[in-house]
């Protein structure tokens, strides 16, 4: 493990053992890489950078919040995309140029960001190895960024130990924040995780439903 890999993780105030911390770190890295790949695929922008240096402990990173839950008996992962309407418009414009960006309706933006969540979560699920077949995907949901405060509160009150990771995906003309929350109920679930990259992701193929 590199120096960066030796990051200290805590759950409910308890520091994770190095082995488990390493597993979490790998999983977080996979999720970050997959999100970047999927957004590159959606926007066709190969120069999209992944920025993990997010200042402060900000929970509300955008007006809107798109999220999806990967849920199994041994592990639960929530993937979230924090964005504003203007950023959503930019993401759409990358693939579908429109003369007047203001004309892009919100539900179109929401659908695109939900799809981004869905694709990313599907890929994450594939990377879980044996757990892939034992986990399910929720529907992606759009809500307000402020609701993150509610989620924080809910997790805190229920005593659930979640490990949060925040990163930004920055292109030349827009940036969105993503976050993941991992709750491990059985550490054996992370035994055989591995990064799987689909060819279609690199080719940028995308099919909307």
């Amino acid at each position: 493990m590199t120096e960066q890999d030796q990051q200290i993780y805590t759950i409910c105030g308890k520091v994770l053992p190095p082995e488990e911390a390493g597993q979490i770190h790998v999983l977080q890295d996979i999720i970050r890489q997959l999100s970047a790949d999927k957004l590159r695929c959606q926007t066709g922008d190969a120069r999209l950078d992944l920025d993990t240096q997010i200042e402060g402990d900000q929970s509300i990173l955008g007006h809107w919040l798109s999220m999806i839950l990967i849920s199994g008996r041994r592990i639960k992962i929530t993937f979230k995309v924090h964005f504003n309407t203007a950023q959503g418009q930019e993401i759409i414009l990358k693939k579908v140029p429109v003369a007047r960006p203001q004309k892009i309706e919100k539900h179109f933006i929401f659908d695109r960001l939900k799809e981004f969540c869905n694709l990313t979560a599907g890929s994450i699920k594939e990377c879980l190895g044996a757990e892939n077949s034992k986990t399910g995907l929720s529907l992606p949901v759009i809500t307000r960024g402020f609701d993150e405060v509610i989620f924080f509160d809910s997790a805190h009150k229920s005593g659930k130990g979640k490990i949060r990771d925040v990163w930004a995906l920055r292109a030349s003309d827009f940036a969105v924040h993503c976050s993941s929350e991992i709750q491990v109920l059985d550490w054996n679930a992370l035994q055989d995780i591995r990064f799987i990259r689909r060819d279609s992701d690199q080719q940028g193929d995308l099919e909307f439903l």
């Binding site: 402990d57 929970s59 993150e148 405060v149 509610i150 924080f152 509160d153 805190h156």
Partner: peptide
């Protein structure tokens, strides 16, 4: 008082 998130008070 019943909603805090990461903050001391909202």
């Amino acid at each position: 008082g019943d909603i805090k998130g990461n903050f001391h008070c909202l």
